[in-house]
Amino acid sequence: MTVPTGLSGPHTPADQQVDRARPAGLGRARRRRVDWSAWRAFLVLTVPLVAGLLIFKYVAMAWGLLLSFSNARGTIAVGDWVGLDNYRTLFTDPRFRDSLVLIVIFTAIIVPLTFAFSLGLAVLVNRLRGGRALFRTTFFLPAAVSYVVASLVWKMSLFSGLPSGVANSLTGLFGREPSAWIATVDPPLYWIVLITVRLWLQVGLYMILFLAGIQDIPGELYEAARVDGASGEWRLFKHITFPLLRNTSVAVTLLLVINAFQAFDEFYNLLSTGLAGGPGPDGRPPLVYLYDMALGQQNYGVGSAGAFVVTLLIVTVTLLQSRVVGFGKGDSE
């Protein structure tokens, strides 16, 4: 590594070598002195984090990978190798395939919905003349609520099966009989509950991200466009706001997809029936399936194998997505 010397003019190779050697040598001497305290600070600050990361993430992940090739029932000791048996078990179980289909459908619904709602809200809030902070905070607040709490509110109050539940009172106004929203799988009314709770919880956060993106767009662009004759909010949005939000949009979509694939909390809390165990076969996304496999049935081998299948799925979808929309290319264009 060389340091720019700031010298100008023609040099012979020998000169250059001298030039290069001198500051580098000086640098080394200086660095050795500076390095000690810097290194100490660096170590003090990073070692706990890196060690934690190594032990609690990477070692655990590596152990999980080994477990996924082991027969590990009621134990987390590796060694009873069974090759790909655990993966075979998973893919021959129609319920696991169902859970993968379920999560793909769930992602396909929740991602565009959240995207549209949060972008729409961001645009509207951005256009407010007064009270912007109030609305921003109001829409953002649900993001601070835990999935468990929200699920309980949705389950016990909004979509309770009793005639007095909020949803049933509303549909009652239109003369509909009360429904058991969460327990009804045919027609799949429980999807309304699952989708609305996640939408309510996450729209605010992504609205903030979009809002930040919108406020980053220089106002002159809009003025210039108006001067050039572009009129109408929709045209301005379509030709300026939305294209310039490209990087934000791509990042938001990425986060949404990953979050959707990892859905667990609302499925588990809305659809579990206490002592009887976790959600039934119609509401069992991969993580719930795997939780049940590992912690309900003590089959840690198959549980770990499933975790890697889900990881692989998320990585594949993410890579495909960046391939399609070209994540990170924006800067070089």
Partner: peptide, 19 residues
């Protein structure tokens, strides 16, 4: 069938309330 009651079957709530 009663479905979507706030408590579960192992709690006598639904029986006592007459739901």
């Amino acid at each position: 069938l009663l479905l979507g009651y706030p408590t579960e079957w192992y709690d006598p709530g639904a029986f006592i309330s007459g739901a």
